[in-house]
Design a protein around this nucleic acid. Structure first.
Lengths: 217, 217
DNA sequence: AAATGAATACGACATATGCCGTATAGCTGT
DNA sequence: ACAGCTATACGGCATATGTCGTATTCATTT
């Protein structure tokens, strides 16, 4: 069995070294590369995304761990990401989960526990330190904090564009939308084209998801 | 140090016995009493609530584990409760968390892991099996799923099909999905074709939305 | 030993989609 | 009156998608 390929991202090179040493005891894992911030990681992934799991710090310059997680998960959803950070405040935890993290551990973790968490995550689970787990349970019980609806300021879709987007979101093809709105398929497509530009996306799914996240539909 | 006082509630007396045996290895825990359903437990707690933690089954006659958890947590919030059940469907998990459970474990658990989970919970954390943890993360990410939280019984997607669906949901084209999963685009398309049949849909968007509603992704 | 299901892979074909350019008509605020 | 925005509409082209069929390999189950 070839070992799992791990990447580490942390702006503190001493801490990277410490994590590497913690993992060095286990021969079913190998650290393929490390980065000091998100964009350095993205550059390495662009060359080769042959990485199974990323251990990601949160507070980093240039591109932080939350943003980086979002981008990596969007482009390479198969790569597992565990946040490995010193802080466990609710804001970070919630944002990391929203960004798509598969786990959340604290840096003071013991090597065997870290190893266990990585393996569990690679086998389709989620790694969480118990105190973090409790926080996620509390978040689930209080749906108040869940709705973090920030509206998209700079983007404004026209009424018609929103109507078309709503139809799109149900999975209808252009021809059906045209019939529903009594306009030509060409017009539907043009509306969608303009909408994509405003939302800066390039497909139905991305448009629908972005629109939902920003409460446009 | 006096051992922690545990209570077990399960309508299957054989399983109670099995759990007791699992815990018998650890002298920092002692099983104070056991009950075959919720009202039996409540009666015992009314006499003496000198209990630190309850291991609670969900499916029981008379008073089930969810309702019992709600009542116990209301009257004795200091008592920790870990759900210990054979089932891990979203509905149960979500309801147990809402009822106030401090953890959720599966009955097939190994003795040392159960022991660990109990201690962690008693020390102010939450005990969760990794696959359950992942489900809670998904619930947090999908506000839709929180309202529905029911699994699709009759439909079962394979592991690979779920992976492909996850990739689909980010808006990636077939070719990118193929690269990410190191398989041919033909295979990606075949997986998607099979998925559509199982979900009874005919497009990406429908598949992704249905999968989200049923907490598949 | 046979059957089943999962994962892999290819070919073919009709349709849908993303993206470009162009164009007309109506409405709004300056 | 004119600039700017919106809604409407067409054509073209490369690529993506949905739906068929077929086929091999591997692991599990009967």
């Amino acid at each position: 069995m070839t070992p799992f390929k791990i990447a580490i991202v942390d702006d503190n090179s001493f801490l990277i070294q410490a994590i590497k040493e913690k993992l060095s005891f286990f021969d079913d894992l190998t650290v393929k590369h490390t980065s000091l911030n998100g964009s350095e990681l993205l550059a390495k992934l662009a060359e080769s995304h042959h990485i199974d799991l990323i251990l990601m710090d949160i507070e980093m310059p240039i591109l932080n761990g939350i943003e980086t997680t979002q981008i990596v998960k969007h482009k390479f959803p198969q790569i597992k990401i565990i946040m490995l950070t010193a802080f466990d405040n609710d804001e970070h935890i919630f944002n990391a989960i929203k960004a798509g993290a598969d786990g959340y551990l604290l840096k003071e973790i013991d090597p065997p526990v870290l190893h266990q968490g990585i393996l569990e995550t690679l086998h389709g689970g989620a790694a969480m330190n118990p105190s973090i787990a409790l926080k996620t349970l509390k978040l689930l019980r209080n749906p108040i904090g869940i709705e973090h609806h920030h509206d998209l300021e700079d983007v404004s879709l026209s009424k018609r564009e929103v109507e078309v987007l709503e139809q799109l979101s149900t999975g209808l093809p252009y021809t059906a939308i045209a019939e529903n709105l009594f306009i030509s398929p060409s017009t539907v497509r043009k509306h969608i084209e303009n909408t994509y530009k405003k939302l800066q996306v390039h497909s139905k799914i991305e448009a629908v998801q972005k629109a939902k996240r920003y409460n446009i539909i």
